[in-house]
Design a protein around this nucleic acid. Structure first.
Length: 978
RNA sequence: GCCGAAGUGGCGGAAUGGUAGACGCAGCGGAUUCAAAAUCCGCCGGGAUCACUCCCGUGAGGGUUCGAGUCCCUCCUUCGGUACCA
């Protein structure tokens, strides 16, 4: 660990050259700031580019190396485009509402605004240190009243259109002990809070929702024309459109009641042998016969107590109970039993399914378990019957004899499934017993949070009371069914100041306690404000529009500003936002489009996700773990140690469900050793490394970050080893000392707890911002996941040193020094870099510049034209050294007012890019045997003649006839001989 | 399970179907130096060979082609997303 940490904070690399980033970088950052070099200005008649980064949440931890990756990519494009005469809008801001600041406030009492402003300060400083060419005059902060005002304004538009509405029975995970609503993944499978292990209840509360489902089809269709990566498929999947039909089943003995099911396989309706209702289905209890009532009730109660995580575990055996009731299959009049089962999801489709065990896996498993009939109605496409005794046949096929016999709809034997679906759907429609129907997986967007640090929802409600509702103990009724929008002129509706940010014991959230804010009087009547706030996504749904016109206090943006810059031409950000942010923003944009406020259906033309940067590769061996009683664990600065032996200990947070409780003490099951239980009710197990090593192919990381032996299921303790201790054997690394032990070589996600986080500040200090930018772009393709290598940044720093040398010492303006070979290489490099930037292939652009610099370094004198061109094409990547060298190459040193930011981008001469004489490979029978030098435009005869003069080729073809010649100009000559 | 992406030296990675391994890191050798660091030059997939050179080699197996890392089929592995979605 200690070695690793040393490696991550390298000492300043001493430089033998005059290149000192710590001097020139602040100098140019100051210059750009003072001169507002990158102010976005629109010139009539010029092309424009809106180049956008996903704006960050300003966390307390500051910038990590993942931020500069995407930001450098867009900055290179922005700087490149400016030099090509394009008007560029390249803004930055802060997505500053969010949970961490609020949690910090709860712990420390510091107001979230204070924390947020401080964090923004840090982020802004760090971004400026990296030399990004943002128009800082357009900086926005989603928590700023001038911004909140318009977020609320858009909410009111949604409300007016009926797209923002309240639902009163939204189930949430409510933890009374923590006084907060929890997300599904904050709840353990046994229904306790992940933090603290307190009981969690399902509580139905009133929530605001946005009707995103009304836009499902348009959100799906809109994806088609976009230049987006695999994200399109993710969104399509998330929307989850599926075409099918609804079918109504009458319930025997309950006239007027019907069970409506949704199915995509209505062709299998004749084979439906029972119906299953979700446990929460309203009919479940209603139709259950008296003798089954109690059982159904019990089953439904148990199901609602289970956490969503447990219910959605596919591997769990299917369960269900019969209701005793029967439904009538509309296609044949059969009476089939109605069951209740929790494999049916209440919130999808209609919450009820028709079960066709012969042709659906889940129904098959259920039918086998409960002895329900299995009826085949689909045969293979060739007409042969399928065997469904072991498993269901789920593919399409053709209708069989049975399907015809059991159907009143005009199905014919041998009719393909898709045709049967149409026939049955039409027949059902004609009988009034069903219809074609499209269902979506997409749910409406729950838009309220029971939190403080968010935009207040600008809605209030009438209050019935004869007292002052702000007085303790006052009785009143809030009429939530009569929401009233806040008048636009009163926006922004700001948050009240609080001292205590705890959620409290009221699910309405902390704002409910701000009584003076919550209740107000108008025309002698009392009203109550909405105490829920908007989710963190709200501000990011439209920030790209505010950047157009960030200081406008008359409207969210002007149409002139919109016309000048929209749509966004390039949008770069992490793929973690592939679905939620990007779907929500598209949704709002479409609503704004319908309101006539924006002119494009889609906001983001081209989208790119930068790949995650992982920590440095670690080599790990595993030891068998020896559990140590919790009482012996002692906390020291470096971590936990065994108070008795002084050995280093590994901690593992345990769930109470994984432990055994005896007399109030929790014991580890695997070793019968007591764990450490904290006052908060958290349990920690401790392990020391045993002497026995376990080969890495048996080690598997658990969800909690600990390691498990897949064979024995016992815990393993990891230990880092160095590269010197390991050897490659076949495709794996093994311990040199004991080759039977495999070593795990892996790069892990950077995390504080793993201690592999790389700090950009330290790297800027040691190597310079230009080196950091360059290295992050040189690591590999922008979209790839890449491991960090601190030694790699030293490599690009050496490159920058060479650039400095080449451009400062020994430069000549003697035209004779600019030899043709150098000219050719310069032009080739310009071509390569130009094309690579446009395709976002920054790694290969940099490698091309490295080749040029190497060549220039070998010249007796460096021609100034070559040096200037190099500086221009390098400057988008490494702008500080670019500006400084540009100045020096014009004989200016110091503070002269000149910048290369708008210098024309170098062009290349196609004639110089093409070589006159080239080397091509010569193959004999498809195998490379030699290479020859020939004129680039040589014809086949010339090439063949040249090849046959080559001694090697002469020998290979001696005494054989050349049957065929394949010649690809400039590429290859292949001689087929026999 | 389904959807998507990817498997190339010790490592990060290059290669419009045309001489696989550009560029960088690490390593090795040399120059420079009293010495070291830094810098510069060279070598650097595996095997055979004194050498010239030859053979093998892009996760595995098949195929298309004069020619396949690249295209097609089957499979394996890794990563990301997602799931009793009827």
């Amino acid at each position: 660990m200690a070695e690793a940490r040393d490696k991550q904070s390298p000492q300043a690399a001493p430089s033998s050259t005059g290149y000192d980033p710590s001097v020139i970088e602040p100098k140019w950052q100051r210059y750009w700031e003072e001169n507002k070099t990158f102010r976005a200005v629109r010139h009539p008649g010029r092309p424009k580019k809106y180049i956008l980064d996903m704006f960050p949440y300003p966390s307390g931890a500051g910038l990590h190396v993942g931020h500069p990756e995407g930001y450098t990519a867009t900055d290179i494009v922005a700087r490149f485009e400016r030099m090509r005469g394009t008007d560029v809008l390249h803004p930055m801001g802060w997505d500053a509402f969010g949970l961490p600041a609020e949690q910090h406030a709860i712990r420390t009492g510091t107001h979230p605004r204070t924390t947020t402003l401080k964090n923004i300060e840090t982020f802004r400083r760090q971004l400026k240190m990296l030399g990004f060419s943002y128009d800082w005059d357009r900086e926005i902060d989603t928590t700023d009243p001038g911004y909140v005002r318009w977020t609320q304004w858009i909410f009111l538009k949604l409300f007016e259109k009926g797209l923002a509405f309240q639902q009163s029975d939204m189930p949430v995970n409510w933890c009374p002990a923590l006084g907060t609503v929890l997300a599904n993944d904050e709840v353990t499978p046994d229904g306790r809070s992940e933090v603290g292990g307190f009981p969690v209840e399902k509580l139905k509360i009133r929530q605001w929702s946005l009707k995103i489902t009304a836009y499902a089809d348009r959100l799906l269709e809109g994806l088609e024309g976009l230049d987006w990566p695999e994200t399109k498929a993710k969104q399509a999947h998330w929307i989850g459109r599926s075409e099918g039909a609804t079918v109504d089943f009458e319930v025997k003995g309950h006239p007027g009641e019907k069970i409506t099911v949704f199915t995509t396989r209505v062709d299998t309706l004749p084979g439906a042998t029972y119906v299953v209702l979700a446990p929460e289905h309203p009919l479940a209890l209603k139709i259950a016969t008296p003798e089954h009532q109690a059982e159904v009730k019990k089953y439904a109660d148990e199901a609602s107590a289970k956490s969503d995580v447990v219910r959605s575990d596919v591997t769990r055996a299917k369960t269900g109970v019969p209701t005793g009731a029967f439904a009538i299959n509309p296609v044949n009049g059969d009476e089939i039993p109605v069951w209740v089962g929790d494999y049916v999801i209440g919130s999808y489709g209609t919450g009820a399914v028709m079960a066709v065990p012969a042709h659906d896996e889940r129904d098959h498993a259920f039918a086998v378990k409960y002895g329900l009939p299995i009826v085949r109605v689909v045969a293979k496409p060739d007409g042969t019957e399928v065997d469904v005794s072991k498993a269901a046949y789920c593919d399409d096929g053709v209708a069989n004899e049975e399907a015809v016999r059991r159907s009143k709809a005009p199905i014919e034997k041998g009719m393909p499934s898709d045709r049967v679906r149409r026939v049955v759907t039409d027949w059902l429609a004609s009988q009034g017993k069903g219809s074609a129907r499209v269902t979506y997986r997409l749910r409406d967007w729950v838009f309220s949070r029971q939190r403080y640090w968010g935009e207040p929802i600008p809605i209030y409600f009438p209050v019935t009371t004869d007292q002052d509702p702000r007085k303790p103990g006052a009785k009143y009724t809030i009429h939530y069914d009569q929401p009233i929008p806040v008048d636009e002129k009163e926006l922004p509706l700001l948050l009240p100041d609080l001292d205590d940010f705890k959620p409290g014991n009221d699910p309405a959230g902390p704002l409910a306690r701000a009584l003076d804010w919550r209740f107000f009087q108008k025309d002698g009547k009392w009203y109550a404000r909405e105490t829920n706030t908007m989710p963190q996504w709200a501000g990011s749904c439209w920030y790209y529009l505010r950047f157009l016109d960030p200081k406008n206090d008359k409207e969210p943006w002007s149409q002139e500003a919109y016309d000048a810059w929209m749509p966004v031409d390039l949008y770069v950000g992490g793929s973690e936002h592939a679905v939620l942010h990007l779907l929500y923003a598209r949704f709002w944009h479409k609503v704004l489009f319908d309101l006539g406020l924006v002119k494009h259906e889609e906001p983001f033309q081209k989208l790119v996700h930068q790949g995650l940067i992982l920590g440095e590769v670690e080599h790990i061996v595993f030891h068998e773990a020896i559990a140590v009683p919790g009482a012996r664990a002692k906390r020291e600065e470096s971590g936990w140690v065994d108070a008795e032996t002084g050995k280093r200990l590994f901690e593992r947070r345990m769930r109470s469900s994984d432990l055994e409780e005896r007399n109030g003490v929790f014991y580890l099951r695997e070793a019968d050793v007591p764990v450490l239980t904290t006052n908060d009710g958290e349990h920690f197990a401790f392990y020391a490394a045993g002497d026995t090593l376990v080969s890495a192919e048996r080690a598997k990381e658990r969800d909690d970050g600990s390691w498990e032996d897949t064979k024995t299921k016992k815990t393993l303790v990891p230990r880092k080893v160095t590269e010197a201790d390991i050897t490659k054997r076949g495709s794996v690394f093994v311990l040199s000392a004991s080759p039977e032990i495999q070593v795990l070589s892996q790069a892990f996600k950077m995390s504080k707890s793993r201690g592999n986080v790389v700090n950009p500040d330290a790297l800027i200090k040691s190597h310079g911002a230009d080196a950091l930018r360059l290295y992050e772009m040189f690591m590999g393709p922008l979209e790839a996941v890449k491991p960090w290598q601190t030694s790699g940044i030293e490599g690009v720093r050496r490159f920058l040193d060479r650039v400095w040398n080449v451009c400062t010492a020994n430069v000549t303006d003697d035209p004779a020094a600019y030899d043709i070979e150098t000219q050719r290489l310069v032009h080739k490099t310009v071509k390569k870099v130009t094309e690579d930037i446009q395709a976002l292939r920054f790694n290969t652009a940099i490698s091309a510049m490295m080749i040029l610099v190497k060549h220039l370094g070998g010249l007796p004198k460096v021609p100034i034209q070559a040096a200037r061109t190099l500086v221009l094409i390098l400057s988008p990547f490494a702008p500080h050294i670019g500006e400084e060298l540009w100045q020096r190459l014009h004989g200016v040193v110091g503070d002269a007012k000149m910048t290369l930011a708008y210098e024309p981008w170098p062009t290349f001469d196609p004639a110089l890019v093409k070589d006159d004489v080239i080397e091509i490979g010569v193959q004999v029978n498809g195998k490379a045997r030699a290479s020859i030098q020939i004129p680039a435009d040589a014809d086949e005869e010339t090439a063949k003649a040249a090849a046959l003069e080559n001694a090697k080729i002469k020998e290979m073809t001696a005494g054989k006839t050349i049957k065929k010649v394949i010649y690809v100009k400039g590429r290859i000559l292949n001689l087929i001989v026999a």
